[in-house]
Design a protein around this nucleic acid. Structure first.
Lengths: 209, 209, 209, 209
DNA sequence: CGGTAACCGAGACGGTACGTCCGGTCTTGAT
DNA sequence: ATCAAGACCGGACGTACCGTCTCGGTTACCG
């Protein structure tokens, strides 16, 4: 269902094997971490032949990617859009807190970190990931911010991509580089600081210290 | 000169071999990228025995770390502090533009990316790196911002670590994840946006440029 | 038409597929030799499914066996008996020279060698081959020699099986083990030497030729 | 010590590993037969890495070859020549009976059969084997027969190579193709028949039936 | 000033995993 | 029910590196 090597007949695909492989990949990523994750181990754990993996996925990273997509599917009614209650700050905090919770869930966190590392190693996977997950997500974020800008909640000159970086980047960094604990308080502080700016100003009241 | 395993006699160390190994690591990281960088290849390229590497460094990442330190030494009169002309915005732009230039220099960029990935994989290396490079650098940044805060150029309630994340994080992300071109314009925009905040305000000098 | 696994309905068998498979086996044996001959390649070359092979033959060797039988059919009016002109030496030379010619024909030689090797590896195939081809042939040879013995052209104490080994064995060895060129002169020499024995005697017509 | 791939440093070779590998190959050949003999299994059984095998031997057959040489060494005081008591028939029977005994020894027989099959599959191995074992042995046989010829015990016109084929070939065939029980009686009969020839003659008295 | 203890290049070693090939079985759709 | 097609599990292939281990040879300290 992901990037393919040489057109195997997708219709004949064994769905049970696919799920077993993705589940095994998820489990192993959680158990041993990226550095020791091997295709051989995934195949063995899944009770599958290695060729079955190589037939459908071009790399370890592609397996992880699909595995995480599988994990997301069963549960979400696809969040077609970010919340928009009219209160930008509250909405952003809601979204970022949810992200914090997800990144603190070990079921997601380790496989995701493994995928993130694979993406750094494999440009082809990076492109695939950017196109199919990262860019759509960023577009959702940009859209919400654009509405805020039109409503006058964001400065008219603000570059929306930079705004996204300022809001979501710190979370991603803390998580990926394990630079500190990932709490909802941190998420709130980031939102407030990014919105109000670092300079002293009239609106620097917020909830913050 | 870095983390050591079991007390080899540093006095007897062959400096020529050390430099050959670090240079080989640097070159190879630039040529083949992290994914294909192997200790075996470094040893061969350096004309060194593998044992000579294992004797002095605990991991591939530690070699890269030292290699980058070697690269930095010959050139800098160690910047003991960040510039402080009194104009925070200008100072920050100066520093971030320099960072952009460094990250765009292929001599640094590929080995650094390789090191960054190693750090994600190896907690021991991560700790070493944090202690010896990352935390001191962050302290420098915090110090400059603290002075700005005392001078009233930063809001009194601003969390300095968050401030550092907001200012330096977007650069690091763009570079590491190859999310887009790394330009001095981008650096400037990040500084302005982070300082002024995303909300509309009296000081929205953002668009002016 | 050969050894079967579990009663497939021979009546419904696709004759075209059978011929395509046997032809492909013959061709491939000639082209790549036994060591690289695979059922997969035969199926692909024949445009047949692997299952079609496994349905009708128990092993690669069985395919080769049938393939060689097919090759022999189109041409011979089954030699029900060895020639018997009354002149034993002349008759034996006639037969062995024919064998030499056959073994020098590349169409036969490589597939036959492949079959011979399969037989060494697979006792079941060996039994099948012995029963259906080798033993009948040997009986033909024994019968001719028995008549010669009755006619007084063979010593009364001679073990006919040993005689067959002495006459036909050297040819088989030279061919299978590529121990030297396989010529009609060699066949003649073998016949003469085997008949007259190695000891010097009155009938040492050996050198005369 | 045999055919090598790319000049590894033979001086540094680990003799213990070499012996473990050869012994494992011998044992496995005896236990599972050629068809299921794998380099992987040899390495595992020997407690060696696969690379250690590939470093020193070009193929499975080369390992077997060396293994059999090792087996022959410890025991024989290299038979520099075939026995020559003056009685050709007796000497030949002595030698062939010894061969029969060796071929009936399961320690030798299965590995030897495995080697014989490898030789049929691998021309490079065949050449190596011919040069280093088969041809020297054949020369020994030829030499003994040449002396017999000079002594008048062999017809002057007899081709010595054919003579060797007639004497030793039947044994090799019976053994390799499992065409019947390999007994000392069979060896005796072959010698007598080959010496006296198949034709009736004055000297066809012998011990035979 | 000669012995010895560390270094060094080289590379063999036991292993793990790679990505590929093929064996033999099973499944699908069409004839 | 056979057939072409080909997915599937599994086992072995031959290769690349890992990290450890010897081997001689070469410093450089120390008695």
């Amino acid at each position: 269902m992901t990037t393919q090597r040489k057109a195997p007949d997708a219709a004949r695909r064994n769905e049970a094997a696919r799920r077993a492989i993705l589940t095994a990949a998820l489990d192993l990523a959680g158990e041993v971490g990226y550095a020791r994750l091997s295709i051989e181990a995934i195949a063995t754990r899944a009770g599958a032949g290695k060729q079955t993996i190589y037939r459908w996925w071009p790399s370890k990273g592609a397996v992880l990617f699909d595995a995480l997509l599988m994990l997301s599917e069963g549960q979400d009614d696809q969040p077609a859009d970010l919340p928009d209650t009219g209160d930008l700050e509250a909405d952003l905090k809601t979204v970022l807190r949810a992200t914090v919770d997800e990144l603190n869930d070990p079921r997601y966190s380790e496989p995701m970190r493994a995928l993130a590392i694979e993406i750094l190693l494999d440009p082809a996977l990076a492109a695939d990931f950017a196109e199919r997950l990262d860019e759509p997500m960023r577009e959702l974020k940009r859209r919400r911010l654009r509405r805020a800008q039109q409503a006058g909640d964001l400065g008219p000159g603000v570059d929306l991509d930079v705004a996204v970086d300022l809001l979501w980047g710190p979370l991603k960094n803390r998580w990926l580089h394990r630079e500190g604990p990932l709490t909802t308080e941190f998420a709130d502080t980031v939102v407030e600081t990014a919105l109000n700016g670092l300079r002293p100003g009239q609106s620097s009241s917020s909830t913050s210290r």
